[in-house]
């Protein structure tokens, strides 16, 4: 047996071995959708075969039936419209205030450090813990619910707006100044449009937070609203309606995400 001599030159011929494969996963939307449908089908089958206790986990068909009944009886609209109103008011108020402070923090020295200090201190407080305080301050009417949502929306908006303003290239601002634009014109025509991508990204976050807080906000004094509906169903161990309410909340989140996606597409098509 001859062993190859390590010092002899090695002969090469043939194709060069390919070494750059992998690390590039492809997106297959059909696979995603099919998986979700498959899981739901499995869930339904499990319930029908008696493997899943319907008390603890209602099957998809029961949830769909509960949703249908809610829609037909008008209950769904009653709760949904009440929540929608609170979301609209609370989110808008928190967003407007957050945009204003975020801009100020991003642009002025007076407000930058104090503003960021206050926001950083108050932001981590779980809003759910503040609900009893809000009741004392604002009562159990609509006010405390709108304020809870506004509060939860305010802080991420400030942070994202300030970050967006910071991200506007200083060279663009100098360019505006060099062409004699006023401070107001620079803010309106350069800073705000430049911060818009960050602001819209922030909207995705705050919209999700608002929907999550809806349940907390509607805990006190609400006899209507998706959040209060979910709470009541949970309390009564009415798991079919509980899951139906959760599905509605989930769909609300998806709808908001879709709308924001379209908004981004339209406003940011220059990217």
């Amino acid at each position: 047996m001859t062993t190859p001599d390590p010092h002899a030159p090695v002969q090469l011929s043939g194709p060069v071995p390919f070494r750059a494969g992998g690390f590039a996963p492809r997106v297959i939307p059909l696979a995603g959708a099919a998986t979700l449908i498959g899981l739901i089908a499995l869930w339904q089958a499990g319930a029908m075969a008696g493997l899943i206790d319907t008390l603890f986990l209602p099957p998809p068909f029961a949830i769909a039936t509960a949703l249908w009944n809610l829609a037909v009886s008008g209950e769904l609209w009653k709760h949904f419209s009440a929540s929608l109103m609170r979301l609209a008011i609370g989110w808008s108020a928190g967003t407007v205030a957050g945009l204003a402070l975020g801009l100020a923090v991003g642009l002025t020295t007076i407000l930058r450090s104090p503003g960021m200090a206050v926001v950083s201190a108050l932001f981590p407080i779980p809003k759910i813990a503040l609900v009893p305080l809000f009741i004392i301050w604002f009562g159990i009417g609509e006010g405390s619910k709108d304020i809870t949502l506004a509060f939860g929306v305010f802080f991420p908006t400030v942070i994202n707006t300030a970050a967006g303003v910071d991200a506007v290239p200083r060279s663009l601002i100098r360019m505006g100044q060099s062409f004699g634009l006023s401070r107001a014109a620079i803010i309106a025509k350069i800073v705000l449009p430049g911060a818009l991508p960050s602001i819209l990204a922030g909207f995705r976050i705050t919209a999700a937070i608002a929907i999550i807080l809806l349940v907390a906000a509607e805990m006190i004094g609400a006899d209507r609203g998706i959040g209060s509906f979910v709470l009541a169903a949970g309390n009564l161990y009415d798991t079919d309606n509980l899951m139906a309410g959760i599905v509605v909340l989930s769909l609300m989140g998806l709808a908001v995400s879709f709308v924001l996606g379209r908004l981004e597409k339209r406003l940011l098509r220059w990217r």
Binding site: I135, I140, G141, D223
Partner: peptide, 21 residues
């Protein structure tokens, strides 16, 4: 009767004392 669910017994009492219900 307009029902106001407030989760805790303490909240029930507080709501009445403060004339909110």
């Amino acid at each position: 009767v307009t029902l106001r669910p407030v989760q805790e017994i303490g909240n029930m009492v507080a709501a009445v004392r403060s004339n909110q219900v």
